[in-house]
């Protein structure tokens, strides 16, 4: 067991595939016992980073310690304490639920009964299908089985690469409930997700894009650092309204958010009423404007635009 307060410490990790720079000078640390989320779109470098953390890839430069073990030098020791769920469903589709679990317990020389308490809540949901082949399970069920298999040897650090991608909203919510329970059992969890709304479920997050970290902090601190004032505007002709709002001199940006448009402006320069009358002048008689609070997605978009500029 490492003695530091960090489960993972990464210092200027870089990795390139030929000309493509997948990761550029990534540094971050994950505290023991927290859920740390990497939030970013496909191609941001999440999978590459996770493969480095799980000893599957060598970084070009930089060092990474997981539970005090070097991912390059101490890979053998590290592989005993890692739980890993790759992005693709990677269980044996032709083996049954039960056989998969037994197999993974076997290769880690773990005792299913001893560690069952860890997976009980998860596994009991799929236990009725114990004799069913893994390939015949629904998306949500596969997810649960994969998580059970990744947990059966009681890992110190659990690395989950996009566990909720392509999973429907209900299963996603259930999956996160399970992660929070595991965290309470003392497991450090690193999770990647393209869904911005999942950020608030993490203790801390790193927003990642084009192989760079845009920001690392608690979700609350990230949204607090949003430099603009935000209004939520509702109207009928959304597209037209967005273009209109973008032309307003005080408006920094306007983006669709579900049925509303989030308008970011320099703080304290204009009020909701000012915007309302501006829209009214330009034909949007029925708009509805309220002060809004930025979410992670607002921050992500803003940070993305900043780095792109």
């Amino acid at each position: 067991m490492g003695t530091s307060e960090y489960a993972i410490e990464c210092a200027s990790i870089s990795k390139s595939y030929g000309k493509v720079k997948a990761l550029q000078e990534l540094s971050f640390s994950v505290k023991k016992g927290e859920i740390f989320g990497f939030i970013g779109p496909d191609g941001a470098g999440k999978t590459t980073l996770f493969r480095i953390l799980t000893t599957l890839l060598l970084p070009d430069t930089g060092t990474a310690l997981v539970d005090g073990l070097d991912v390059v030098k101490d890979y053998k020791a590290l592989r005993r304490i890692l739980g890993y769920m790759p992005g693709r469903f990677s269980l044996y589709q032709d083996l049954t639920v039960e056989e998969n679990l037994q197999f993974f317990a076997g290769i880690f020389q773990a005792d299913i009964r001893e560690n069952y308490y860890l997976i009980r809540d998860i596994y009991e949901q799929i236990a009725p299908f114990a004799k069913r082949k893994a390939g015949k399970l629904s998306g949500g069920m596969k997810q649960k089985l994969a998580l059970s298999c990744a947990l059966i040897h009681k890992p110190v650090v659990l690395v989950l690469d996009e566990p909720t991608t392509g999973v429907d909203a209900v299963s996603r919510r259930e999956f996160w409930e399970m992660l929070i329970r595991l965290k309470n059992d003392g497991i450090t969890i690193v999770v990647a997700t393209p869904y911005m709304d999942e950020a608030t479920l993490c203790d801390r997050v790193a927003l990642i894009q084009h192989g760079r970290i845009l920001a690392t902090d608690t979700p609350q601190a990230i949204t607090n650092a949003f430099p603009w004032q935000l209004f939520e505007v509702k109207s009928t002709d959304t597209l037209n309204m967005i273009n209109l709002l973008k032309q307003h001199p005080e408006v920094h940006n306007a983006d669709m958010f579900g049925e509303t448009v989030h308008v970011s402006v320099k703080p304290g320069r204009i009020s909701a009423d000012d915007l309302f009358s501006y829209l009214q002048e330009h034909g949007h008689l029925q708009s509805e404007i309220i002060q809004g609070n930025p979410g992670i997605e607002d921050c992500f978009i803003d940070l993305m635009r900043m780095t792109n500029e």
């Binding site: 799980t54 000893t55 592989r79 890993y84 693709r88 990677s90 044996y92 290769i107």
Partner: peptide, 13 residues
């Protein structure tokens, strides 16, 4: 191909 090798590699095997 199926990605299970990834999991096998990240095991003490």
């Amino acid at each position: 191909e199926l990605g299970t090798m990834e999991v096998l590699l990240v095991s003490p095997l």
